[in-house]
Design a protein around this nucleic acid. Sequence first.
DNA 1: ACTGTTAATGACTCAATGGTCATTATAGCA
DNA 2: TGCTATAATGACCATTGAGTCATTAACAGT
Lengths: 229, 229
Amino acid sequence: MTFWSFIGDGIIMNEESIASGRLRRRRKEERPAELIRAGLEEFALHGFAGTRLEDVARRAGVVKGTIYRYFADKEALFLAAVRMEVSPVFSQITGFIDAYPGTTRDLLKLIIETVHRQLVNSDLRVLVRIIIAEGERFPVLTELYYAETVSKGRVLLERIVQRGIARGEVREGAAARLPLVLVAPALMAAIWRMTFDRHAPISSEAFLEAHIDLVLHGVLVGDERETGQ
Amino acid sequence: MTFWSFIGDGIIMNEESIASGRLRRRRKEERPAELIRAGLEEFALHGFAGTRLEDVARRAGVVKGTIYRYFADKEALFLAAVRMEVSPVFSQITGFIDAYPGTTRDLLKLIIETVHRQLVNSDLRVLVRIIIAEGERFPVLTELYYAETVSKGRVLLERIVQRGIARGEVREGAAARLPLVLVAPALMAAIWRMTFDRHAPISSEAFLEAHIDLVLHGVLVGDERETGQ
DNA sequence: ACTGTTAATGACTCAATGGTCATTATAGCA
DNA sequence: TGCTATAATGACCATTGAGTCATTAACAGT
């Protein structure tokens, strides 16, 4: 095995252990995170049922049995994987909104750009696939993801819109009443990259620009609307 | 089995065979469609790998072996199921756009309402889940869906936007250059219903209104923008 | 160095399920 | 009313893969 470690895609194995040539390494601390990482990648690729624990193990550079030292069963690993990737992105930002000095126009641009960077062009993208694919089977999962990420995002958007209305920059209307739709194009971009991009590629920039253009003109009042590009 | 047919959710069985009390019925014509339907539902619920052919069979009111008279294997049934649901919705509509007598405002409203009716509140929704979930594993599938549905939708939206620009009703800009984003909120609505609606319900109407509001103000020129509600 | 603890292994079990096939019942026809 | 072709059955096989566990070996403390 030590020999084949170099080959085989995606195998995690620190240089240390390769250099030392030792077959077994006790890595009590790092192992769980590595297994979770490997699990997330496999789950994203094949879904829960389609993922083989042996593949996860190989990807993490261990043997299947090792997984069971750290996780009770397949489901536990799955939930842990999702839970790890659900990082508390929105925690501190929310408060920062009210103190933001610039216009709502700049604020919206900033937020949309951030969402594209965080959601469309990162590992979070595959998590979106997992949530959609396995949501029905694991309600715990959608609940967790909603509580940890989506609901915070909603609050964030709500703040921005309310602040904008108070400053007379955002037009009241149906869209302002459901600020969630303001990030819909980013969701679409994330999904597109995972599905149709192979057959009909659309650049991230095109999506981002269209998104910003649509939203700024969609919710700002007349004077604030100029795209400026 | 004839007795239990009444119980058990989702079992397809025509009244005829129940009334007659016969256990076996030869139904050469209807069987494939029923199996496909049952398969689609199971696949949407559990994914490709997670679906048991025995469950599909039971849902269709037959026995597992019967499936293999009509389909070579699990994958064949899966592809057939997706292929059936991919209906040529946009075929005739596209030409009709140019001849549309009303304003772009009305046309956009009409289209958005249609998309919500067809995509969010119909069986097509589960297809969206399947495409997203299994797209990576079955490129044939995304290609088919893109060619049959998405690309036609894109053409349709393109026409509307071009017509609007020509009539001086649609503002040129990044959004007009990627009309796809104009239906992003509908995609979000469809996904929402399948994932978070259980934890945080949002009415179809709220999504629809926000969608219309955002898009009309997002791409129409000043004078055409009034929501009028 | 010696030793106890336990991380890691890999061979194993067993249940689940995709797929096969000989047998049986049904519908259409002579 | 039989006869034939074949749709449908259900028992069966083979494989896969989750989960177990006795054994092995790496590390920490002495």
